[in-house]
């Protein structure tokens, strides 16, 4: 069969990609306090430990607050930028978009450090809000990329047609453009949400004394006793991400089907 060797390689590669994730539930349900082989008995005690952990609960609430806020802010900013880049031509367009997209090629530690210096200099207290500021900054380029694709696949005359049929500029946008880019908006929200939820280094610099999920996990990884619980937490997080991703994929396909595009996996 053609590509047999390649297929075997690809499957091995998938195994490499999934190896750590497959191990997660193994240790999450293992009663041994040391995360190593051989395994002990089956247990769910680590999950109940998760439930009772108040710091963790606080970290979760913080992380969700940050991720939802950053996702919404980044998507709104991304819509402005994507529309500006697809619909208009103006002087300085390249430079402006370049600056907005810069965090994509900037190590996160640089973003975190520079923001930290300025926020401290201005006298802003570090909190959940400062993390939202940083996360919005790094999520916006992803939103812009996703939404630019969504906007540029639209026929320019659709909006004009709506205006021609009697709708105002805003209503033309609301009735025609918005429904058509809705799958893009959903992808942007989900992607930003996931990036923010998982982001460690900026949160580490900007959260002050507030825990977020990644900074909490990072602090616990130093204590061997806490590891099994972290494995349980990881299992929950992985399950949640897969659920979210499946949802995102469902929306994307539905959006594609609705406008009659062929499904090419999001990479035309």
């Amino acid at each position: 069969m053609r590509g047999g060797g390649l297929r075997a390689y690809a499957l091995l590669y998938l195994l490499f990609l999934y190896a750590p994730i497959l191990l997660l539930p193994v240790f999450a349900f293992n009663s041994g306090t040391i995360v190593a082989f051989p395994l002990n008995e089956f247990t769910t005690q680590w999950f109940s430990q998760l439930w009772g952990n108040t710091t963790l609960r606080r970290a979760l609430v913080n992380s969700l607050t940050i991720a939802v806020s950053a996702a919404v802010l980044a998507t709104v900013l991304g819509m402005f930028a994507a529309r500006a880049s697809t619909r208009y031509r103006f002087p300085g367009q390249g430079a402006a978009l370049g600056l907005i997209m810069l965090p994509l090629v900037l190590p996160e530690i640089i973003v975190g450090v520079s923001l930290l210096v300025v926020l401290l200099a201005v006298g802003v207290e570090l909190s959940v809000l400062t993390v939202i500021i940083g996360h919005t900054l790094i999520c916006t380029p992803y939103s812009v990329a996703i939404l630019t694709t969504a906007f540029s696949s639209l026929d320019q005359s659709l909006e004009e047609a709506a205006q021609d049929l009697g709708e105002s500029r805003w209503n033309a946008f609301r009735l025609v453009i918005l429904p058509l880019v809705m799958p893009g908006i959903m992808s942007s929200l989900l992607m930003s949400f996931t990036i923010s939820l998982d982001e460690f280094i900026i949160a580490f610099f900007l959260a002050g004394n507030e825990p977020t999920l990644p900074t909490y996990i990072f602090s616990q990884l130093r204590f061997p006793k806490a590891i099994p619980m972290i494995m349980a937490l990881g299992t929950v997080l992985v399950a949640a991400s897969i659920l979210l991703l499946a949802l995102a994929e469902y929306f994307r396909r539905r959006g594609a089907a609705r406008t009659g595009q062929t499904n090419s996996g999001g990479f035309p």
Partner: peptide, 12 residues
């Protein structure tokens, strides 16, 4: 009212 070159039929 206009008939556009691409027809601009709302796909949704």
């Amino acid at each position: 009212n206009m008939v556009f070159q691409s027809y601009a039929i709302f796909p949704h």
